[in-house]
Amino acid sequence: MGAPKPVVQSRSTWSTRDILVTAMIALTLGLVLAGVSYVYTVARSALGPAIGGAIFGAWFCLPGLLTMYMLRRPGAAFLAQVLVAFVQMPFDPSGWVGAAPYLVNGVLCELPFLVTRYRRYGMGVFVCAGLLVNMLFLALGTLVFGAANLNWAVTAVAAGLALMTGVFIPWLARRLGDALIQRGVLDHVSAAPAPPEAGDNPRAAQPHGKPD
């Protein structure tokens, strides 16, 4: 019997370093999100699931958006969301059930980038991802938590908040990403974008694609 053949790394293969970097972003933000999910549960009980979901929905895709902004490669957002789902599981009473929305969020975060064939990383594409995720939370609120039977004023407030956080969280992800890139933490990671110069337009940090 011969020795097993080693894996030949293709360009699309994720290196251990990329996976570990994604895992650590997922862990750091996952622990924050475990706290956010408690506040979300309280808000959901106090304000109703539609409003609770609208306020906090996009928070749960922050790791995916940040990873996509920093690594800029197909599957980055989905992989980050999968890893967040794993790392927050022991700290969330919902366990694997609580992990499931992260996976759906991962797919939704990935969609706008897939549509642009991973060539555009402008604010518009990120906002699309944030809004898609919030739409999912509103739909969940309607289906599982009975929000369809609440009055229209509540639903309208929820939709307004969904719009606001759907824009705010992608903006936050990009700001965090810029701060980290400027500090040079991704200098050795394969697909990391170049750091923006001080006072430069942050869009200069997008060597792989055109801005919106």
Partner: peptide, 13 residues
């Protein structure tokens, strides 16, 4: 916190 975590991830990898 994120910067430390990412640097630690690189060394672990």
């Amino acid at each position: 916190l994120l910067a430390t975590a990412i640097r630690r991830a690189e060394r672990t990898a």
